[in-house]
Design a protein around this nucleic acid. Structure first.
Lengths: 380, 380
DNA sequence: CGTTTCCGTGGGACCGCTCCCACGCGGCAT
DNA sequence: ATGCCGCGTGGGAGCGGTCCCACGGAAACG
């Protein structure tokens, strides 16, 4: 646990292991009052006030205080005022653990992030969803627990962990086709909502962007520009997002009466390097290639490198469309046309689906599909 | 709370408000056994086993079970084995709330993120630190609570919220000079560790990158390339990071015997637009400008736009160095030379400092400075 | 062989809340 | 006056752990 040792300074600044303001030896909790010097609080005072203390001060019973706190209507105006004043005077805040113990609710939900997916971290995807989730949860007074599974073993332990009345519900960020954690959570009757689905018949509630629709508008945009030899770089096909985007690509071509050739499809893995490799492959297989739809911006950025290496200009020789409208899309050269998905709204929607499921189990799981839109820039 | 309504589809896919697999009306928690059909569990069975149940099954007292769970050495091998078997058979997992209630520890810490700082989200900064924090916490069996304050009012409420024995400690992501939340947490005796410091005499424990050192190597690099009219685009100077980076810039110039001119310093706000505006200003003030150190990559990306608009080539006319080595640095045109800070390690260190402080208060707050390094690319 | 020491153990007393039952009391019908 | 209703209320009984004290039996001592 002593991993906080100080590292050698590569940049020259001396690194003082300084402990600024060493506190007095005993370091009893001491409150600095703005009004001036005061005696330190005694242990009893430092101890946060309990509901009992509030009741005593307000001259009512515990039950009444509890009712006031929980907004019960069966409290006289007089008592309510007295209790509220006492609460304010004492700075009382209810003890969550005590409440949880009896209510069997924790008022918190877990957001599970498979840590292996480092790709998540290089994009606004993760942050955008979290922001939405947090916003959606805040209104309901729910806390957000961030749970990262570093490896498969840890991931496997998660089910019992999450079901041990630690959280009222679970949100999952990225699910692969064969992921069984969601099933186990369902068995254990833990309300769960997924970002994306595992397959077309996802039994659990989930929220996703209209991936195939997004892919369709992307490809349609390329077709409208007169491109005909349109390739695609897919994500890992064991993920439904990737499959859906590929489907959308196919549909758009079919709708336009353009044949779908297998050698125009190369698979990547949502990484930059994967995108680069896939692009090289496409160029090799189809020298006549004049456009590419990449299933993610990061892969598109890799593709740009491969194109540049091959001496192809974007968009003149090969037009390019990405997916995600992430920050790289704006800064890549040339700026990337990309399909935007409403991340924050996805997060917010996940939160609200989960809250519904927690509130009244058995409503049935729902799926929500949010629209995507094409952000046109210079690459296509 | 019914904000999960379905939005009109912009992309054409019909959005079925489908509720897949509508459950049976009662929907009592039902466990699907792989071995075949089974009767639904009764309420009593669904209720998770308690420590008492484990004790009964193992034929020992509650105390003994508790000792086994907490790894006390004062348990005979026989009892320990019996208890462990009972735990496994029942799938027992301790109830956190019950434990918290008596131990007055929650085994969880909060990570406070001022939501206003959306800039955080467009960069790996946030993700990198979180990843480190999570890794550092996981070993100690601590949970990570993500707390976002959406506005000033919410932020103000945070102190009492965080001190209400909800968490054992607090990590704060971004602190401005005048932020008083850390002080209030200290008053309330809540262990706290900051990412970055508010000023040079930060009383609280904190972890930061060697910002001034990083700025120095950046500027030194520009000097070594023969540049002399070196400008800088600073961050908001009410943040210590920004001030430190500016200090480093000044020091490097002074060390090299180059005069520091005020008209070579323009302030940005860590945003792309701010970087663009600052760059325009610099170009106007100093037509002879031949290099710029931007205190963040995002601002550097804005600067590139302004330079391009002004017809200046990078790095030929004006060399550019950024800070953060974020994903945009790699993808910008030209690829940006930038100062890298060890985000994950910063997060891990924050976690371990906090754990120390929780374990033994009064050790004194510590500061840890982690080294930065220059990643040289084409922009300088 | 009695006495002390020590180790492993069982179980009572809480932790701070919610739930719920019983009770007092004023108002209304009888 | 007597009964009944219903509202607001107080407080007992847990929720599921940990802590700690007291206790029995084996080992070590005189």
């Amino acid at each position: 646990m002593n991993s906080a040792e100080h590292r050698p300074e590569a940049t020259g600044t001396p690194t003082p292991a300084s402990s600024a303001n060493a506190p007095s030896p005993l370091h009893t909790a001491e409150v600095r009052h703005p009004a001036g010097a005061r005696r330190p609080l005694t242990a009893a005072e430092v101890r946060r006030p309990t509901l009992n203390a509030v009741a005593a001060r307000a001259g009512v019973g515990r039950g009444t205080v509890s009712r006031v706190i929980n907004g019960s209507p069966k409290v006289s105006e007089r008592s309510r005022a007295a209790v509220e004043q006492a609460i304010a005077e004492l700075g009382y805040v209810p003890n969550r653990a005590a409440r949880s113990l009896v209510t069997r609710r924790t008022d918190s939900v877990a957001l599970v992030v498979p840590d292996a997916e480092t790709r998540l971290f290089s994009e606004p995807y993760f942050s955008g969803i979290i922001q939405g989730v947090s916003a959606g949860l805040a209104g309901a007074g729910m806390q957000l627990l961030l749970v990262m599974a570093r490896d498969a073993q840890e991931y496997a332990r998660l089910a019992s962990y999450l079901s041990a009345q630690r959280v009222d519900g679970v949100l999952m960020m990225e699910v692969h086709r064969d992921d069984t954690l969601p099933d186990r959570l369902e068995e254990l009757a833990v309300p769960t909502v997924l970002a994306g689905r595992r397959s077309h018949r996802e039994p659990l509630g989930h929220v996703r962007a209209d991936n195939s629709g997004g892919a369709r508008i992307a490809v349609r945009h390329l077709l409208a520009a007169g491109r005909r030899a349109i390739g695609t770089i897919t994500g890992p096909l064991d993920m439904d997002v990737a499959q859906d985007r590929l489907d959308g690509y196919r549909e758009a071509l079919r709708d336009a009466g353009v044949a779908v050739a297998d050698d125009l499809i190369a698979s990547g893995d949502f990484t930059e390097e994967g995108g680069r490799a896939a692009m090289r492959e496409l160029l090799e297989r189809r020298p006549d290639l004049d456009a590419v739809f990449a299933a993610s911006d990061v892969m598109a950025s890799g593709a740009v490198l491969a194109l540049r290496a091959a001496g192809r200009r974007v968009p003149h020789d090969v037009a390019l469309v990405g997916f995600d409208d992430s920050i790289v899309a704006r800064h890549i050269d040339p700026p990337l046309t990309s399909v935007r998905q409403p991340l924050e709204e996805m997060g917010r929607t996940m939160a609200s689906l989960l809250l519904d499921e927690i509130a009244q189990r058995g409503t049935g799981h729902r799926e929500v599909v949010l629209p995507t839109e094409l952000v046109v820039r210079e690459s296509a």
